[in-house]
Write a protein that binds this DNA or RNA. Structure first.
Lengths: 168, 168
DNA sequence: CTTCCTGCAAACTGTTTGCAGTCCA
DNA sequence: TGGACTGCAAACAGTTTGCAGGAAG
């Protein structure tokens, strides 16, 4: 990975995006450039809206649809990918899928990244027993983080009490 | 489970819903009755819309909002619960949460129920290592079913090809 | 100069909410 | 009777799409 770049690489660790675009017959546009930079700046998991806000600091008139289309294109060429962390909007991050997975607290929203190796054993079991190839990188593992679980000690049968903005 | 009923139990295996409602200060209405019967008839995992359609066979004017509010009430009193099987609408089913979990194929949508025991070991590991209490009953485990995985042999790095109506 | 790309507005799905009228207890 | 419940319409979030004009190559 990480092919050498001839020009225009802003050095955000995004790799040869220009080349990726070009090799897929896609154009390099200010909007796409700004989107890539925005994601790099946000350097984590960002929703389309957060990315759009960031993009508009540079190009104030970029529309939501362009952001969505751009994210789609960039994902298609392999420059980034998205994941679902619960009920809320999907989040995008740089790089290919499959590198890490997410544990998300349904109550406080806390996000913990874990290595793909963590789920490998379980995934193997599902594969052996059911022929099912689980993908824990695209959809998060939901549950309760340590502190939330401690705060509300196991009341059996209570289906994860509805809290705050947590519409389930 | 399956408390004895004094009256009105349609015998759908829904248990003492009347009592549940009453004990929560909620009323028994034709709409709620019809919703319960609809779910019992659908006897699986049904979306709010599927339930609404079924309800309207008996009460043609029931509105979507009533169905949603009814499902919410019934869930709050413990008569049913819902789960998320991917990008699509949530599905509702009779009974309390935590009894079974779902393996959902992201490509063909195939749904496989597995006993809660299947994930117990993995959940324990997450708890020990990260203090994270995973809940596999509310959010499904996504991936590829046996036949879809066979049809598209592992092309490494390809993030679950986009197909049919599968907007991710 | 020809595509691809963009912005705008509108549509869309799934779900929630405000309101005024209705009905159960 | 009074508060719970209902239907309607409107709003909501997140995302997609059709279209006409704009720009990359």
């Amino acid at each position: 990975m990480r092919a050498k770049r001839a020009s225009h690489d802003p050095g955000h660790g995004l790799g040869d995006v220009d080349g990726l675009l070009r090799s897929h017959g896609l154009r390099r546009t200010p909007q796409r450039q700004a989107t890539l930079e925005a994601i790099a700046e946000l350097s984590g998991h960002a929703t389309a809206e957060q990315i759009a806000e960031r993009v508009r600091r540079r190009l104030p008139t970029v529309s939501a649809s362009t952001v969505y289309r751009t994210l789609g294109s960039l994902e298609r060429v392999g420059a980034l990918c998205h994941a679902h962390l619960g009920h809320t909007a999907s989040v995008y991050h740089v790089g290919r899928a499959g590198l890490h997975q997410h544990l998300v607290c349904e109550r406080c929203g806390a996000l913990r990244e874990v290595e793909a190796s963590v789920t490998a054993g379980f995934a193997g079991e599902l594969r052996r027993r059911f022929g099912f190839h689980a993908n824990f990188t695209h959809f998060a593992v939901l549950g309760e983080c340590r502190s939330c679980a401690a705060r509300r000690p196991r009341s059996p049968g209570t289906p994860a009490g509805r809290r705050r903005g947590a519409r389930h």
